[in-house]
């Protein structure tokens, strides 16, 4: 797992992906920070964090699109699968590499908070809660992206499909509001990534949401392992 993790990290930075991801993320977070926090003269960063939800949703497919699809296309998966590593090792190595890059991007928000702390009182509890929410959201979304990437050989398809899946996950609230059956509505609402995320940005630390994001990440990583497994057996 360590070798795959290091290779993916190197590959992010030797290709343009890391730079594109980081610069776009910094650009938008900086804009939202300026517009939502600095311009309104507050130390509350929640506005920025809730606006970043959509940006994360667009950027994560870029991060994960080539992780497995490119291996399949270049036939390098054959090298990985015949090396003495477990399937979990392969999948998690890639997953954590993407999560690390995502977290590096995220850390810029802490810098913003530090800047703010020079000018006023920052509620660090809120900042950490927001940061944690973004981290958890990313860890779930990246797992989804890695899974979609394992289904195709084409990076662009992987990116587009992950984006589509994430949009659907984002719109679950809207879909739920269209459903009249209470039972299904409740299920859909409890699957809502957005509602849970917004809860965090308002400072509500809900343990069930933490469990929800982590288990989503686990389930999709598990699916990815199954995709590899299935390929071997069919």
């Amino acid at each position: 797992m360590g070798a795959i993790y290091r290779r993916e990290m190197n590959s992010f930075f030797s290709s343009s992906i890391a730079y594109v991801f980081l610069s776009v993320f910094f650009l938008f977070s900086g804009y939202f920070f300026l517009a939502g926090t600095l311009m309104s003269g507050t130390t509350d960063m929640s506005g920025m964090f809730s606006a970043l939800f959509l940006i994360v949703l667009i950027l994560i497919p870029v991060l994960t699109m080539k992780l497995i699809s490119e291996e399949k296309k270049q036939k390098t998966d054959q090298g990985l699968l015949t090396a003495p590593v477990s399937l979990w090792g392969i999948v998690l190595g890639k997953y954590f590499a993407a999560l690390t890059l995502y977290t590096i991007g995220l850390c810029i928000t802490l810098v913003y908070a530090l800047i703010l702390s020079y000018f006023g009182t920052v509620l660090w509890g809120m900042v950490i809660s927001n940061f944690l929410a973004m981290f958890l959201l990313g860890s779930a979304f990246i797992a989804v992206g890695v899974f979609v990437s394992s289904l195709t050989e084409n990076q662009i398809t992987a990116a587009a499909a992950s984006f589509l899946v994430l949009i659907v996950l984002y719109l679950i609230d809207q879909i739920a509001s269209l459903v009249n059956v209470d039972f299904i509505k409740n299920i859909l609402m409890s699957l809502s990534f957005y509602t849970r995320y917004i809860e965090f940005t308002r400072g509500v630390f809900n343990l069930s949401s933490v469990v929800f994001y982590i288990s989503t990440a686990f389930v999709f990583n598990f699916f990815t392992v199954r995709v590899f497994e299935k390929k071997r057996w069919s």
Partner: peptide, 16 residues
């Protein structure tokens, strides 16, 4: 661990 394998298409990461 005991096998070294050269597949038909060598599994090379071309960007390395």
């Amino acid at each position: 661990k005991n096998i070294g394998y050269l597949p038909e298409i060598p599994p090379l990461y071309v960007d390395m």
